[in-house]
């Protein structure tokens, strides 16, 4: 285990514990933890198990997989500005969710929203693979992702534009900001299989990404199957991003900023960065989800707004530094 993981994993556990202890029901950790683990009668076990636990689990899962997918995308594209959203899958999942809200399906049936978002993500992956093909070049893949994002974004705007009902429109806008509030264990179970498949796909790419440090030709000559590597990165990222967006909305900048921040801690090697970045992503999202509840407990500050607020300055710093390197 690297030193970075030895530092990050306890941090993730500590943040998870803090997150579990925060909420409108004012209970201390020594009271709430036994209620969570052993259950029992009364409102406290229910609060812990049905309200706070899913929130913590989703932050762990979504933050962790965004960090993992971000590191995989950056390693595969050999570009520190790459991020999971680049494939257009998150924008398409958002479109699916928006359609569910607009059509009223999400009111009739609670799981319609995440299911519709998942459908959007799956359709996006199919289009992506058709557009980019099995032997696609990196540039084709990026362009296909950009095109998909643009189409999904435009259609989302169109739905908002034509929305006859201001309540639906504001619900759409708020949903798109991303949040972990009021999620249940159902959301966890819904996202879990897709995320498990995505993590399994991404778990095997470290060796290939390490080899890609030397370029595609050198990696291929070292026995790396580049087609298989691309498929794993694209499908794995699509699975976790699609599932994450479906249950929590658009949460940006985690997959961009976290791998970049932690790259130095693993000596720049893209393989070891995968897991360090996953732990870092979980920590960042847990911290952000704690912050939205602590900073403005009565204003329902959205998680995606906070990650963007914290992430965008990092992005600027990145641009600033790369500008210095070129000069």
């Amino acid at each position: 285990m690297t030193r970075a993981l030895a530092f990050l994993l306890p941090l993730v556990l500590a943040l998870a514990a803090v997150s579990l202890s925060i909420g409108p029901a004012d209970v201390s950790l020594p009271e709430s933890l036994p209620a969570l683990i052993f259950g029992g009668d009364g409102p406290l076990p229910m609060v812990m198990r049905e309200i706070r636990l899913p929130r913590v689990l989703l932050a762990l899962m979504i933050g962790g997989t965004l960090g993992l997918a971000g590191a995989a995308m950056q390693g595969y594209l050999r570009n520190p500005l790459a991020e999971p959203g680049l494939l257009g899958v998150s924008a398409s999942a958002a479109l699916g969710a928006v359609l569910a809200i607009q059509s009223g399906l999400s009111v009739a049936f609670a799981l319609a929203l995440p299911l519709s978002a998942l459908a959007g993500a799956v359709i996006a992956v199919l289009i992506l693979i058709m557009l980019a093909g099995p032997r696609a070049e990196t540039l084709t893949l990026i362009l296909a992702g950009v095109a998909l994002s643009a189409v999904a974004g435009a259609l989302t705007q169109l739905v908002l534009n034509l929305s006859p009902n201001p309540f639906a429109a504001s619900e759409i806008v708020f949903w798109m900001m991303g949040s972990l509030a009021d999620r249940s264990m159902l959301h966890v179970w819904l996202a879990l299989p897709f995320m498990a498949v995505g993590v399994l796909l991404l778990a095997g790419v470290g060796r290939g990404l390490d080899a890609l440090t030397l370029g595609e030709d050198a990696a291929a000559s070292m026995g790396i199957d580049l087609g298989l590597l691309r498929l794993r990165v694209v499908l794995g990222t699509a699975c976790v991003v699609g599932a994450g967006t479906a249950v929590a909305g658009a949460i940006g900048f985690v997959g961009l900023v976290v791998p970049h921040l932690l790259r130095g801690a693993v000596g720049g090697r893209p393989g070891p960065l995968l897991w360090v970045s996953a732990a870092g992503g979980a920590a960042m999202l847990l911290a952000a989800d704690i912050a939205v509840r602590v900073v403005a407990p009565d204003r329902d500050l959205k998680l995606g707004v906070l990650t963007a607020l914290v992430g965008a300055p990092f992005f600027l710093r990145l641009v600033w530094r790369s500008r210095g390197e070129r000069a």
Partner: peptide, 25 residues
């Protein structure tokens, strides 16, 4: 072992880690 003409090094890895990539196969 194959050395393409483009001397690509995508990430700021330490020299010893770069050399150790030769053990990957």
């Amino acid at each position: 072992a194959w050395m393409p003409q483009a001397r690509e090094i995508a990430w700021p890895v330490k020299v010893e880690d770069l050399v150790a990539l030769g053990r990957l196969p």
